[in-house]
Design a binder for these strands. Structure first.
Lengths: 224, 224
DNA sequence: GCGGTAAACGGACCGTGGTCCGAATACTTT
DNA sequence: AAAGTATTCGGACCACGGTCCGTTTACCGC
């Protein structure tokens, strides 16, 4: 990687809340904090929106898996370098396309009304969280799948980390015994877009069955 | 893909056993059946071993993540096309390097002595299977990680399918309630090389903790 | 307006995975 | 041994992600 500042990706997924932050471990902030990045130059901002529009159009036309960076650059009448400077890499561009829905989704369980948001008992929140997540995944399946990073980075993207800390917090709050962090990984892996894709598309499982499976899993895992 | 016959990969991972085959669903045989493929031409066989030797050397020298197909071809004094015809793609070559240990691993739980192999009570076998798998993954971490396919194909490679059918069979045998197939996926995701990599290398978790987590997970999941 | 400077631009360039197809060659048949 | 044929070979070729760096341009102080 070059020594230049990391790409801004988008303006960052909403701010951090009071959901206690478990560990944080690796460097990188849990969510790309929305703090004021020095404002963008006018041409940069203009190109940014042109690129996003072009990308959205191409995705709608040909599907996210056929989106190429050159095509986006060309469709936006912009140099290829510009695309990479703005979004870092292909995954960054795809994630930027999802930014809006991702934010809504995150807010729904971080600060939304119970039983999904704070206020309901933790096990209840776990159940709701899984259902909400499965539906979010199903709704954006193709895009999320195309944005999925290489295997060795699968757990690094901030959205994934947020899911994990959220699950860990709820498990701790539910006072389930055992290794909360590992159990959170277990639960999280049931909310994986690749798994959802495999089960629903390749194996023809209905989404209901996944949802029922989630409730059953929560029951088994939280049973003291 | 071309209409030519699919690449032979390697001579195939050992044969199928009596472990009931759950569903089989998608086309493709569960294990690339070892049935006699029409024998290889002499030059093909020679090149195959030269390629594997070259690849093994390069992996040892520079690590599997830096292995390029061209480098292998060059090191084996062979055309690039030959590498691809023989192994299909990068993943196929990497898997071929693992073929021997993979076979030993599979035999250990399919036909080996109890409590890992048939003969012990199913829950006991589950426990042993997880431990054995975690150690197998840890032993071949780098190679397995480099061989991991794109997200949308994560569950397709025969070894992964074998793990799933094995887990499903043991769960059914243990007469745990619930959706055996989904529970098998839950268990399998704890035995994922990317997860193991993340937890042990990025987060510094000792392998013991993963093993303890596995035993705990089996207990929670099989608790009736 | 006018210069100075940091930021953004753009497209040539590179490495790598994967394909293609005419040339070469190992087996078979007579 | 010679001819025939199916298989394999090999490297030119393509597509795509990602980098680099000389050029352009928006913003800031005057």
């Amino acid at each position: 990687m070059t020594p230049t500042a990391p790409p801004d990706d988008e303006q960052g997924h909403s701010g951090q809340t009071a959901e206690q932050a478990t560990e944080q471990a690796a460097g990188q902030p849990l969510l790309p904090l929305a703090g004021q990045t020095p404002p963008m130059r006018a041409d940069a901002a203009r190109n940014r929106t042109r690129l996003l529009e072009a990308a959205a159009r191409l995705v709608a036309e040909r599907g996210p898996e056929h989106l190429t960076m050159e095509a986006v650059a060309a469709a936006a009448s912009v140099g290829k370098g510009t695309v990479f400077r703005r979004f870092g890499d292909r995954g960054g561009l795809l994630m930027a396309l999802l930014d809006h829905s991702e934010r809504l989704y995150q807010e729904s369980f971080l600060t939304g009304p119970p039983p999904l948001g704070p206020g309901a008992p933790p096990v209840r929140r776990l159940e709701e969280f899984g259902i909400a997540t499965l539906r979010h995944l199903a709704a954006h399946r193709a895009l999320l799948l195309a944005a999925e990073p290489e295997a060795c980075r699968r757990f690094e993207p901030p959205p994934r980390r947020l899911v994990l800390t959220h699950l860990t917090a709820l498990l701790r709050e539910a006072d389930v015994g055992g290794d909360a962090e590992l159990l959170a990984h277990t639960l999280a892996s049931h909310l994986d877009v690749a798994l959802l894709h495999h089960l629903t598309r390749r194996r023809g499982m209905p989404l209901d069955r996944l949802e029922a499976g989630w409730l059953d899993l929560v029951a088994r895992v939280t049973r003291t």
